[in-house]
């Protein structure tokens, strides 16, 4: 299995921000996306996840094989840790809630409401969700925000396990996850050029 992204262009607020982005990812590989704030990492990930249309280019995999992990964890404060996970497992038709909790070191917290978790614990729960989707390609946006060093190591271990099992991962992050085997793609060179301003008031559908 291979994810092939070819010459993709993505837009935010009607303006193309990245263009000509191409990469390949095979089973067991991870790719770390880098670039300054606002370059379009989140936009690219959301486009790949199928949440917004690409302006151009192709992706060979349907969004159904991608699992998107955003800044927000999608947790419900009044549900317990186990209930939150069980919900996402049921949505994706997958078992393994207990295993996911064990892997992310949440078993002791299983009956605590998400409202009473610390920020780092919530994040761990959000990441545990990835394990109950059963999808091969993880698309993660800053997965380590508010995690302490030990939890980052824990997550890196889980990620390695996912890759070893033939999964793939596409991660936008500034922190070094300790994944030496992961390739790095800097997005800065793909920043889209602004469309030319036509002189004399001429303009087309882009209005600029």
């Amino acid at each position: 299995m291979e994810l092939v992204v070819a010459d993709i262009a993505v837009a935010r607020g009607g303006l193309t921000v990245l263009e000509g982005v191409s990469f390949r990812l095979s089973s067991g590989q991870a790719l770390v996306l880098r670039g300054p704030n606002g370059v379009g990492k989140t936009t690219l990930l959301r486009t790949l996840a199928g949440l917004q249309p690409a302006v151009g280019g192709t992706v060979n995999m349907a969004p159904e094989s991608l699992c998107y992990g955003a800044h927000a964890d999608g947790l419900k404060a009044v549900l317990t840790v186990a209930e939150n996970l069980r919900f996402w497992a049921a949505i994706h038709g997958v078992d393994g809630v207990d295993d996911a909790m064990a892997q992310m070191n949440l078993t002791a917290l299983r009956d605590r409401r998400a409202a009473n978790l610390s920020a780092g614990q919530k994040r761990r729960l959000g990441l545990a969700r990835l394990l109950v989707t059963g999808r091969p390609i993880w698309v993660l946006d800053e997965p380590t925000v508010s995690l302490d060093a030990a939890s980052v190591q824990l997550f890196a271990g889980v990620l390695r396990g996912h890759l070893a099992a033939g999964g793939m991962a596409l991660i936008a992050t500034h922190i070094d996850l300790g994944l030496d085997e992961a390739a790095v793609l800097d997005l800065s060179p793909f920043k889209a050029a602004l469309p030319k301003v036509a002189r004399g008031g001429g303009f087309d559908e882009a209005f600029a």
């Binding site: 607020g13 009607g14 303006l15 602004l194 301003v197 303009f203 882009a206 209005f207 600029a208």
Partner: peptide, 13 residues
């Protein structure tokens, strides 16, 4: 719309 588009590009550039 044209004005807005021009302002946006000025902000970005």
């Amino acid at each position: 719309r044209r004005l807005q588009a021009l302002l946006t590009r000025e902000r970005i550039a």
